[in-house]
Amino acid sequence: MKVIFLKDVKGKGKKGEIKNVADGYARNFLFKQGLAIEATPANLKALE
């Protein structure tokens, strides 16, 4: 799953980066902790 990092995550990505991560890791950790959001077209446009 492609995500946009909202904060730096050690070993995974830095704020503003778009990367592929495992679906479960994204849903169960990154999204719940507020560290990333899904890289949807609307979210990508908002990032610009």
Rank of each mutant, 00 (worst) to 15 (best):
N28V: 06
V9F: 04
I37Q: 06
L47M: 13
K2W: 15
E48Y: 10
L35S: 04
A42R: 09
L30A: 01
M1W: 06
E38M: 09
M1D: 03
E38R: 08
A42E: 15
K32G: 09
G24E: 15
A46F: 13
G13Y: 12
K12S: 14
G34P: 00
A42T: 10
L47Q: 08
Q33N: 15
A46Q: 12
I18H: 02
Q33Y: 15
A22K: 12
L44E: 06
P41T: 09
L44D: 04
F29M: 09
Q33W: 15
Y25L: 08
A26L: 13
L47I: 11
Y25T: 06
K32E: 14
L44K: 06
E17K: 03
G16L: 05
L30E: 01
L44Q: 07
K7S: 11
G16A: 05
A26E: 13
G34D: 06
V9N: 01
G13R: 01
L30K: 00
K19S: 08
K32P: 15
A22T: 13
M1G: 04
K45H: 13
T40W: 04
K7R: 14
I4G: 01
P41E: 15
K15T: 09
L30R: 00
V3H: 00
K32F: 09
G13E: 02
L47V: 10
K19T: 08
L44A: 05
K2T: 12
A39I: 03
A26F: 14
G16I: 01
G13N: 03
E17M: 06
T40H: 06
A39R: 01
G34W: 06
V9R: 01
A26W: 12
K12M: 15
K12R: 14
V9K: 01
I4V: 08
A39M: 05
I4F: 06
K14G: 05
K7D: 07
K19Q: 09
G16S: 04
L47F: 14
E17D: 11
F31V: 10
F29H: 12
F5G: 01
A22M: 11
G24K: 12
L30V: 00
F31G: 02
V3E: 00
A36D: 00
V3G: 00
V3I: 11
K14S: 09
G13V: 06
G24P: 12
Q33F: 15
I4K: 03
R27D: 05
I4D: 00
G13L: 02
G11L: 05
M1E: 04
D23H: 13
I18F: 03
N20D: 14
G11V: 01
A22N: 14
G13P: 00
K45Y: 08
D8Q: 04
K19I: 10
N28R: 10
G13I: 05
G24Y: 14
